Structure formats: structure tokens, C-alpha cells
Simulated scan of single mutants.
Amino acid sequence: MEQMRRFNTISEYNAFNNNETKHPLVTVVDLSKADPRQLSRMYFGFYIIFLKDVKCGDLVYGRDTYDYQEGTLVFLAPGQIAGSNGNSDFYQPKGHVLAFHPDLIHGTTLGRRIQEFTFFGYQSNEALHLSERERNLVVDCFSKIDYELDRGVDKHSKRLIVSNIELFLDYSVRFYDRQFITRDNVHQGILERFEQLLNDYFESEKPETVGLPSVNYCAEQLNLSSNYFGDLVKKETGKTAQEYIQAKLIDVAKEKIFDGSKTINQIAGELGFKYPQHFARVFKKRVGQTPNEYRSLN
């Protein structure tokens, strides 16, 4: 069985890559200093961002391969595992890695905002592809962080380092917004498939047997992570994926309400609601009328 490498501290990861540990909670790693290696599965106990500069095999998350080519960024949160595709060839890694421990950002604005950066939850085929200009900006952010690490720790270090990490992550949000727009060949048809998925779901017996469709369920059916899927729907429609599902639910509910042979309780069950009262609350919140009031007025 392939052995997993575990990196719980920044110093462990620096040692693995022949880089000096300048700060116990944050590092910018120059992978060209590392020894040639074979790809293997790795566990990280901290946030880590890979900037890849050379073709060195496929990076795998779970059972899927990252869309990970030269000039791309991959983001991993603490507790995630990345690995190889079984390629046993040795290669010389090249590129840069930004890694920071959660303890670094506790009590900072970045610590309070870190959940906003949903790309730390993206999975296969969802890496950030950079233009040359974007890549240069990322390298500049990394260089400023490394500059602060070279100066040694003083009363300004933490604020400046964390501010530069936050700036880099904010730029990454902008770059992903651009990618959602420009990578039409990857995203083409996602919304149409999402719409058809919901149509098929509500026309089947799944609502009665499984319940209401969730964002996670829809993302899995479309082979996307729930974070990436949710962000893509938001960028394309202005609605969250949950709001989109609820809008479809209400459209189906309105059509069913016109069928006078069914009670509101029966309709609630057919839509996947366990309790009719829950259906009535959701419907009134979205439509402004209860299902019975809507039936009477129409």
C-alpha cells in the first residue's frame, strides 16, 4: 500500500523541501530546492496553496484528478489530502508553495473571513488557471510575504504577513470570477444540466422517497464540488444554488396546486416535504400567500 506523508507543522514541510523555517506558522517554499521525488499521497494540517511551474504528473484529490497544469493554483484547507495518480517516475518539483497554519490568522480579519474563500473546498477539475499577468501578481504577493519572513519577527510582522495573504486570497477571488466567465468550454451547459436535473428529480419518485434535492446532491450529479458549483451558479444567475432549487420547487408547486384533485398535504409529500406545515411556510415566504390562498385566488 502506498505510504502517506503527513505534514502537521510548517517546519516538517520545509524540511521535506530543503527550505529553511523562518517562521513556525507560515512559509513560502521554493520547490526547486527540493530533492527529486516520486508523487505520493500527502496530508496537510494547515492551509496550503500550490503554484505549479512545471509539468510533474497529476495531483489527485480523493478519486479525481485536479485540472492541474503549468501556471495553475490549487488550494487545500487543513485536513485535506492530495496525492498522486500512481505514476512512479521521479521528477524535479518546480514552483512555489504558500503554507500557513490556522494559528497564524486567529484573531485577525483574515481569521474572521477565511470561510469566505470557498475555493479551499474546491476539488477535481476546479484549479485556478492563471494568465501570465495574474501569475506575476501572485509571485509578487508571495515575494512580499517572503520578504517579511527574511526580516525576522518584529511587532509588525504578523500584521503585514497576514495582510499580504489576505490580499493574495482576494486577488484569487477576482481571478476565479474571471475564470467562471472565460472558461466557457468547461462550464458550458452546467446551468442547462442543473435545470434538467431538477426537472427529472421532481418528475420522479425521488422527492417522496429521498426528500428535497440538496445542493450537495446536485453538485455530485454534475461532478463538481458543492463550493465550486455554488459559486458558479451565483456568478451566472445572481442566486445561490439553494435559492435556485427553491425557485424551481415553487414553480413545480404552483403547477401542482392547480390540480384540484390533490390536497395541499398530498402536494407537500410529492414535493419532498416531510411536514405540510414546512411546505406552507416555504411557499408563503416565496410567494406571499399560503398554498390554500394561492389556490383560491387562482
Rank of each mutant, 00 (worst) to 15 (best):
E2V: 06
E2A: 14
R5Q: 08
T9F: 02
T9D: 03
F16L: 05
N18L: 03
E20G: 11
T21G: 05
H23Q: 14
P24E: 15
L25H: 10
T27Q: 11
V28L: 08
D35S: 07
P36T: 07
S40A: 15
S40F: 15
R41S: 14
Y43R: 03
F44S: 03
G45R: 04
Y47T: 14
I48P: 05
D53A: 09
D58L: 08
L59G: 09
G62F: 01
Y68A: 07
Q69L: 12
L76T: 02
A82P: 09
G83R: 07
G86T: 04
N87D: 11
S88Q: 15
S88E: 14
D89C: 08
F90K: 09
V97F: 00
V97L: 03
A99N: 11
F100C: 03
P102S: 06
G107D: 10
G111Y: 07
G111E: 10
E116P: 07
T118N: 15
Q123C: 14
L128G: 09
H129G: 01
L130D: 02
S131W: 13
E132S: 06
R133W: 14
V139I: 13
D140G: 09
D140C: 12
S143G: 06
S143T: 15
D146W: 05
D150T: 12
V153A: 05
D154K: 02
L160W: 08
V162C: 04
N164P: 06
L167A: 06
D170P: 06
Y171Q: 15
Y171D: 11
D184H: 13
G189Y: 08
F194S: 08
E195Y: 07
E195W: 03
E195V: 07
L198Q: 02
N199G: 13
F202M: 04
K206R: 10
P207I: 07
E208I: 13
T209I: 15
L212E: 09
L212K: 06
S214H: 00
N216D: 04
C218E: 12
C218T: 09
S226H: 10
F229E: 05
L232M: 01
T237G: 04
E243R: 15
E255G: 15
I257E: 00
S261H: 12
T263P: 02
N265M: 10
N265K: 09
I267F: 01
L271P: 11
G272C: 07
Q277R: 12
F279C: 00
F279V: 02
K285V: 05
V287Q: 05
V287F: 05
G288R: 08
Q289D: 12
Y294M: 12
